[in-house]
Amino acid sequence: MKRRALTLGTALAVSAATATVVTTPARAMVPAPAAAPARTSAPAPLTGKAVYLSDKNGIQVLTYNGRWTSQTVGGASFAGQFSVAPDGRRIAWIDGKNRLHVLSPAGDKVVARNAAYIGPCLTPAWSADGRRIAFPLKGQSETRFVNAVDADGKNLTRIGKTLGPCHLTWSADGRTLAGYAGTTDGVHLLDTRLHVSRRAPGIKLANHVESVSPDARRIVVNTIGRNAPGGDGSWPTSFTPSIYDTVTGKKIPIPVGGKLLGARYLRDGRLVVRVAGRTANTLVVLNASGREIQRLAEPARARTFGLLGILG
Rank of each mutant, 00 (worst) to 15 (best):
A79Q: 12
W126K: 09
R218G: 00
L62Y: 01
G262I: 06
T248F: 04
S54T: 05
R267H: 09
T18M: 09
W93H: 15
V110M: 03
V110G: 01
K259W: 02
G306H: 11
T40P: 00
K204T: 14
V30C: 00
T47F: 02
I94R: 07
T176V: 14
K250C: 01
V247S: 13
L156Q: 02
W93P: 08
T10K: 10
R3L: 11
A228D: 15
G160C: 09
A280H: 15
I59Y: 15
N114L: 03
R267V: 14
P124E: 03
V272S: 11
A50R: 12
A200C: 15
Y52D: 12
T20E: 14
T72L: 10
A11F: 04
D185E: 15
R267I: 08
L163V: 04
S104I: 08
N114V: 01
R90Q: 14
G262Q: 10
G58F: 10
A276T: 00
G164H: 08
T240P: 00
L261D: 11
N65Q: 15
V209Y: 13
L260N: 11
V221M: 05
G96T: 04
N287H: 06
D152G: 04
M1P: 10
L46M: 14
A34S: 14
H208T: 05
P214M: 01
R90M: 05
Y180Q: 09
P33E: 08
V221A: 07
P214W: 02
P136S: 03
A26T: 12
A116G: 01
G58T: 03
G160K: 08
S197H: 06
